[in-house]
Design a protein around this nucleic acid. Structure first.
Lengths: 238, 238
DNA sequence: GAGTGGTCTAGACCACGCA
DNA sequence: GCGTGGTCTAGACCACTCT
């Protein structure tokens, strides 16, 4: 007998269905799902099969399960969770919180690299958000945030975004961010960098390249952050 | 009825037992475990309970499961796996491989910080391995590796360790390294640093603080790596 | 075809949170 | 005491690998 191609386990089909329902807004963040028994009955599968799908989603931070209470759609965004793992401090250890500085947004064609990183469904337009953030009132952090234009229609009319970008994604555009992938390297400042955060050309900077993924494991954001680390300690826990 | 304290699920007991057997050398890296049915019979539990324990161990990279073949004790060490995620390259993208330079080892009392990091079972002696590594024949990387002395008797007689430290842990001392936790920060060079890798005092360095954990989730190594990033790009994928 | 892990079921009982 | 998720069982059948 030939190998059965296209075989897809039942629990994965249940997983796909539940992810779709959450992404469509049928179950909203913070809301409680039907019980395992009810879902099993509706979907005509056993409770164990439902459980396996929900367990997978729990391990991906899409759901939270609380014994004795129920299963809930997670409200946690990576921005909130990564605050525990990323941070700035002075050399003596006192923590520093960056303030918001300049911010601008424009629509343009994406570069080849950006379109390779983002899952754009063929569209070539992107929004680019450029901003600087301040440490002790001095510009020290440069962010360049790129998202595909198609799913974010009207993003330029949102006004200042500040730190609540992922919350905006969820509330205005129904995009559930669930994970990020960060690459850290040490680079030297370009002429453009030097102008924005007042350092010499060639000064050492930390660069963090972040890809952000939604509930469908689609890359919805590509972000480059550059940090002047003179007198600032940046820490990332891996 | 009062709450049952000290309740421990069966599958966790199976997990503990299997971890102990591997750590005791009853099953060795690369070896195949008995089948789920056999284990279930031996331990007088159902196959599903064994499965849950083995699945957990698989997700922790202790085991590898191959459908149709069997379940095997993993041979992969983090050193090998992290090579995919950490690395050095030139600004133009060509990868660089560091060479081994100076290396020395000595036994001494651990500092308070080191004893807090390491799980030492009360012993206060540690081995400190200091080494430099070279990029293009110039010293660029400083490593300070600290391990508890007790489980590593005779480590100073091992001669040059080079890059095979975790393999040595496993083969000579039966310690199975399964995970690491890294913290990255940007610092400035101290006088001692400056001497070892010929940079100015105050030059910017990347510092990676790594805690290494064995199969029992015990911290068996604490390592501080400092990298001169002038002309070198260091990348870590999180 | 024999042996392994992978999927799925149906049902029992336990621990937890709440009213 | 009820409803929820968490554990555990026994057994059936499927998919993969090797001989």
């Amino acid at each position: 007998m030939s190998t059965t191609l296209g075989f897809r386990p039942l629990y994965q089909q249940v997983y796909d269905l539940m992810v779709t329902k959450i992404s469509d807004g049928e179950y909203r963040p913070g809301e409680m799902l039907p019980s395992e028994q009810q879902l099993a009955g509706q979907l005509k599968v056993s409770q164990g099969t439902v459980r396996k799908a929900l367990d997978t989603m729990t391990s991906e931070n899409i759901l939270e399960r609380r014994q004795g209470k129920g299963t809930f759609v997670s409200e946690q965004t990576p921005e909130r969770s990564t605050l525990r793992f990323f941070g700035f401090s002075r050399p003596d250890g006192t923590p520093l919180t960056p303030q918001n500085g300049e911010e601008s947004i424009r629509k343009r064609k994406g570069t080849a690299k950006e379109l390779r990183q983002l899952d754009t469904d063929g569209s070539e337009d992107v929004y680019e958000i450029s901003r600087t953030r301040l440490i002790e009132n001095k510009p020290a952090i440069i962010d360049k945030i790129v998202v595909s234009a198609k799913p974010f229609q009207g993003l330029q009319e949102q006004g200042k975004i500040g730190t609540a970008l992922y919350t905006l994604f969820q509330e205005k555009y129904g995009i559930h961010v669930i994970s990020t992938n960060d690459e850290i390297s040490a680079i030297v400042a370009s002429k453009a960098d030097a102008k924005k955060i007042s350092v010499e050309v060639g000064a050492p900077l930390l660069m963090i390249q972040r890809s952000t993924f939604d509930i469908h494991k689609k890359c919805v954001e590509f972000r480059i952050t550059k940090v002047n680390t003179q007198g600032i300690i940046y820490t990332a826990r891996i």
